[in-house]
Every structure is written in structure tokens, then in C-alpha cells.
Computed example of a mutant assay.
Amino acid sequence: MEAGIVGLPNVGKSTLFNALTASKAAQSENYPFCTIEPNEGIVSVPDARLTRITHFITPQKTIPAILKLVDIAGIVKGASEGEGLGNKFLSHIRQVDAIVQVVRCFEDPDVIHVAGTVDPIADMDTIETELMLADIQTLENALSKAERTARSGDKEAKLRVAVIQKCNEHLSKDEPLRTLELNSLEQSAVSSYGLMSAKPVLYVANVSENDLEGKDPLVQKVRDQAAKVGATVVCVCAKLESELAELEEPDRSEMLAEVGLAEPALHQIARATYDTLGLESYFTAGEKEVRAWTIPKGATAPQGAGVIHSDFERGFIRCEVYTLEDLETYKTEKEIRQAGKLRVEGKSYIMQDGDICHFLFNV
């Protein structure tokens, strides 16, 4: 699973990506198309539960969950028609699982806005419109082929035609496909098209150093707009975060204290992106390592075991589970077991965020 960081040129997108991944993606210098190929990076997902676990189980190493981010070059109005190498950039968005849109909510005369004025709602609408227009083109191209196949009596093609028409009708109302309810069969029928306005979105409001809490009216407009599509908003000052990312401890903690932050805002973005992707974590804990494992929400115990190794899923027998709260109450796994708090779960068990597990398998 991966998320694509998108935005209009000069909104702080690559600055944010660099800070998140501690990489050196090309900076814009007021040039809209600085990043033609997407940059990719791996980001750890900060999770205080790991530290709480290691207070009772001391491992040789601690491994957090990770997620993959792709920095996609700035999109401009007309991208769906090829403006500004738009088709190439849009194809990169088609391949990710979720969208992280950076929205500029700060004024700076030294950083030219591509539209000449800072208007986050206009920026959000521009990108949403381009994604919807690209989806319309994709669906129109797919419809004729699906209709030809459907005339032969193919049931799957008939369903595909119906879903394409349903999607087109929704898009014709200027509504992104993420606000259209489709059942699992309908989703499967159009899943191969990589419809971009159907992807979940997280909005990152890039604020000034004087507005770290996002109290500016521009940020509230972003929150109001995001609420209409059920999206989350995280406030971040990309400039400040890039400076923090270059510091070592304890200098980073000292700077955070000076600006009144409990943690880098990048941590919030990583966790919010993880959630937007529909992911959660369970843990394995022992003397060798304490580790967070990434699973989709709703995964069964065998599917959860499968992220460790395919043999674990194939030969799954049962899962032994306890909670972090159990560990903090009883201090050791032995005491948890003796207290009868160690649960034994089978193949139908739905993994819960924060489960601490042992898997038993046989192949």
C-alpha cells in the first residue's frame, strides 16, 4: 500500500516529502515541473505503544510499521488534457492507493503561487476537477469495450457497463467517486481502471511558522471542505519540519519545546496517512524484537499471520492474543496466561488494532 503526495506547484509538497523521508527530492525554485519522475520514500509510523510494550518486554531491537510515499510532480489546471505533462503525472496518481494533498495556507511573496493568489479551496477544487475529468475519460474509453462484450451475454461485462454508467452519472454531478457507495462486486468490476477520484484523500494544510495550530481562516476553509468528503486535515509547517528533520536529538526536542509542539507534525501526517490507507497494526513481542506489523482493517487472523510469512497463513492453526492493557496490568506474558487473559482465536477472528500476538502454524 502506498500514498501519493500531490499538490499544485509551490505549495511545499517536495519540502514536506523531503522532511518525511529525509531524502533530497528536487526543490521547485518557483519552477512548476521540477519533479518529472515521482520520488519514492519509506516512512516509519510513530507508535507510542511500541515504547509501552518495551517497558515490560526488553528486545534486541524495536521495529515500527512503515508506509511508502510517492512524491508526484505538481499538477496544474488542464492536467487531464495534458497540460504541464499532466497525463504523465496523473498516471502516477493512478498507481497509488491514497492521495495526500498538500494545500498552501500561507502567504509568502518570495514563493510565487502558480495561480497568482493563495486560495486553498480553489487549489483543492483544481486537483479534484482534474482527477474527475481524467476518470470521465477513462470510463468513456472503457464503456464501449464493455458494451461490446456485454452484447455477447457476458454477465461480468453487463455488470461493468452498469457500474461505469453509475460512476459517470455521479461524476456528471461534479461529485468525486469516493463519495459514491459501491458494493464489493461493483468495486471489483471497475477496480482495474485505477479511478483517481475514488481514492481516499488526506489534506495537509501547509501553514506558516506563526500559525502552527492552524487557526488561520484559510485553514478552517480547508477543514470545512474536507468534511464534505469525510477527509481528515493535518496542519504542518513544511519549512519548520524540514529544519527539524535535519536536527539530531536533543536539539530537535529543544526546538520542538521552543515552538510549543509535543512532537513533529510529520508524525501526525504519517499516522493519518496510515489510517487513510485503511491500515492498522498488530504487534509481536519477544526478546529478539518487538515489532509492529501492518494489516488492512478487517483482516482475519490467518491474513494477519500471512504478513509475517506466507507459510504462517497457509498452515495457520490458531492465534494467541493479549492486549497492551493486559501487559501493563500483569507485567509479563506468564502472568497474563495465568490470569486467563491470553485469548486463543481461530481462523475467523478479525484482528484488532493493537493486538499482541503469537501465531501457531504447521505446513
Rank of each mutant, 00 (worst) to 15 (best):
I112M: 15
I112D: 14
V114L: 00
V114F: 03
A115W: 14
A115H: 14
G116V: 02
G116F: 10
G116T: 02
T117H: 13
T117K: 11
P120A: 08
I121R: 03
I121Q: 04
A122K: 14
D125M: 08
D125G: 06
T126G: 09
T126P: 10
I127M: 07
E128I: 02
E130P: 01
L133D: 03
L133V: 10
A134K: 10
A134S: 14
D135G: 00
I136T: 05
I136H: 04
I136K: 02
Q137I: 06
Q137A: 05
T138H: 03
E140M: 11
N141C: 06
L143P: 07
L143A: 05
K145E: 07
K145V: 12
E147I: 07
E147P: 03
R148L: 15
R148E: 14
R148P: 07
R151C: 11
R151Q: 14
G153K: 08
G153D: 09
K155R: 07
A157I: 05
A157P: 03
K158Q: 15
L159M: 11
L159S: 11
A162G: 04
V163T: 11
I164Y: 01
Q165S: 11
Q165L: 13
Q165I: 10
K166W: 06
K166C: 02
C167Q: 01
N168S: 13
L171G: 05
L171N: 04
L171H: 05
L171Y: 09
K173T: 02
K173V: 01
D174Y: 14
D174K: 15
E175N: 06
P176I: 02
R178W: 12
T179C: 13
L180K: 06
E181K: 12
E181L: 09
E181T: 07
E181I: 09
E181C: 01
L182M: 08
N183K: 08
S184Y: 13
S184L: 13
S184R: 11
E186D: 11
S188R: 14
V190S: 00
V190I: 15
S191D: 07
S192H: 15
S192W: 10
Y193V: 12
G194T: 11
G194R: 08
L195G: 01
L195M: 13
L195Y: 06
M196P: 01
M196H: 00
S197V: 01
S197W: 02
S197Q: 01
A198T: 00
P200W: 03
V201R: 03
L202Q: 11
L202W: 13
L202I: 08
Y203A: 07
V204Y: 06
V204T: 06
N206T: 11
N206P: 07
V207P: 02
S208V: 00
E209T: 02
N210M: 11
D211F: 01
E213K: 12
G214F: 04
D216H: 15
D216L: 14
